[in-house]
């Protein structure tokens, strides 16, 4: 099944600091829900291990994350693919960062994903909600990064 997510978030920082953090594996590891490990293979290329448990959907996923079309500090393309006991998934997200008038940064994302395997069939009713929930968790964690600083 296909998942499409788009959204915009405002973060209390400026675009270049936001850019630095979203390409920082340490920040990402702290912010991505269920991220157990994230290892850099090459600049902008990571392997990632996730342990996700949301409602009826739970399991371990091994995946890779690759950043491309880097246009700092404005935009990039993120390719994600994952493989787990409950299914496989792949997707791309176009991320754009702009400055708000109030000196905060705005991040806009447009993501397209495809999920296969057990999770696609069993999870179809909750999958979209789960995806939105995970994104929300991610941004909540990311915002905390800047609050803490």
């Amino acid at each position: 099944m296909n998942l499409n997510l788009t959204g915009t978030e405002s973060i209390q920082t400026n675009p270049s600091r936001l850019w630095e953090s979203v390409i920082d594996p340490a920040v990402l590891q702290r912010s991505i829900p269920g991220c157990v490990s994230m290892d850099e293979l090459a600049p902008g290329e990571y392997t990632i291990t996730l342990e996700l448990k949301v409602a009826a959907v739970g399991g371990n996923f091994e995946g890779s994350v690759k950043l491309s079309e880097m246009n700092p500090p404005n935009s990039c393309l993120i390719n994600v693919s994952g493989n787990g006991t409950l299914g496989v998934g792949k997707g791309t997200a176009r991320v754009t960062i702009t400055a708000n008038e109030d000196d905060t940064a705005r991040i806009t994302y447009e993501a397209d994903g495809e999920v296969s395997g057990l999770v696609a069939g069993v999870g179809q009713r909750v999958l979209m909600g789960v995806a939105k929930h995970l994104v929300r968790q991610f941004f909540t964690a990311l915002k905390k990064e800047f609050e803490a600083n």
Partner: peptide, 12 residues
């Protein structure tokens, strides 16, 4: 369309 069975429990 991706070849995944969508009705695999009594929920669906």
């Amino acid at each position: 369309p991706n070849g995944q069975l969508m009705t695999q429990s009594f929920l669906d």
